[in-house]
Design a protein around this nucleic acid. Structure first.
Lengths: 188, 188
DNA sequence: CACCTGATGTCAGTCGCTGCCATCGCGTAG
DNA sequence: CTACGCGATGGCAGCGACTGACATCAGGTG
């Protein structure tokens, strides 16, 4: 075994999340992750660019989903409403992954390096959203600001969803957060 | 010499920025930085936690200035106006450091690891601002959203200032960006 | 002049990460 | 059925970031 067991990538991701949860990110070596997955350190780095990236395999799919929903919003929709459509789409995606999301988020919140990686993924999402808004005819700096605002709403909404009771729907928390942002920016 | 030359910290920071500019962040080793500063690698790590941190020595002062300005805004001011006061204060700080800011930003924009570090500094600023707003009586999630929005405006305004002609005043760009955000969030 | 203290130097060691080449298992042409 | 090709994996050497432990030095103090 080891060689030729299927889904080496998945086994590495699973082993990494387990070990990061059990003893922390810093206290885990890549050799240990690879060993638990029945592979070697060298193979780990063939599947993931670095020790952090193994926790962010799904982030590109999330970004694509978000961007597509914004791009597909009716042409008549205001930028902020196109964004709301994106937040809806994203919320669906997480609906049945709450436990996984919680476990993963706990690991990330416990380590600064992992937070850095999370932040740059969100920045990439913001850039992609801004690009999409520009294609919809939104000028700068409105496009970048709207995108940044959208990511801010996502961050706050996501965090509230993670700590919320099981029943709380992510889409509702996202909408509430967006409304709060509207209220506070209108307050001046 | 080497030992007992004054301002070892400053010499290290200067040498690092020079080398990162000349040949790039990745292509520069800590040994080289230390050597140019007339010191050793070990001493570098006594002054800076890691190879990236040497570019972010001033970020805590920036955060403190921003936070204090928000905290000192008139109690009657709406959260978004307290934020605007913070952006004003920050703009003053940068007024006579444009060349340095440009050089530094060019280095950061050329490397993903440095962007990660920059992002976590901004996230720290957002958290500190949210805390300050809470002390001013703003509830969650409005406090966090306002803080995130403030940092978004800072990011966009700063970027525009970096690329703008010499005459453009940073404070004006910040105000414009804030107004744009207000417009776009009111558009739904 | 002896002593103390903080900053620096020296050295060994761990770990993340990469390049290079060998090896393995499977599919496929012949 | 066999030989060959190919993608995935292993093994190994090496670099650079970073750390802990200990020695050393310059300057101030008694």
């Amino acid at each position: 075994m080891g060689r030729w067991e299927p889904d080496a990538r998945g086994r590495l991701a699973k082993a990494a999340l387990e070990l990061y949860s059990e003893r922390g990110f810093e206290q885990t070596t890549v050799v240990e992750i690879a060993k638990r997955a029945g592979l070697t350190e060298r193979t780990f780095f063939r599947h993931y660019a670095d020790k952090r990236e193994v926790l962010f395999a799904g982030s590109s799919a999330l970004q694509e989903l978000f961007v597509r929903a914004v791009a597909d919003a009716p042409e008549s929709a205001a930028p902020i409403d196109a964004l709301a459509a994106g937040l809806d789409a994203v919320s669906e995606m997480f609906a049945d992954r709450r436990e996984y999301a919680r476990k993963r988020q706990a690991v990330i919140m416990a380590n600064a390096e992992l937070q850095e990686r999370e932040l740059i993924k969100l920045a990439s999402m913001s850039a992609a959203l801004a690009d999409t808004l520009r294609r919809r005819g939104v000028a700068e700096p409105a496009a970048s600001l709207t995108a940044e605002a959208g990511v801010a709403v996502f961050k706050v909404g996501f965090e509230r969803w993670i700590v919320a009771a099981e029943e709380r729907d992510m889409a509702h928390l996202m909408r509430d957060s967006l409304d709060e942002l509207k209220a506070v920016t209108a307050g001046g």
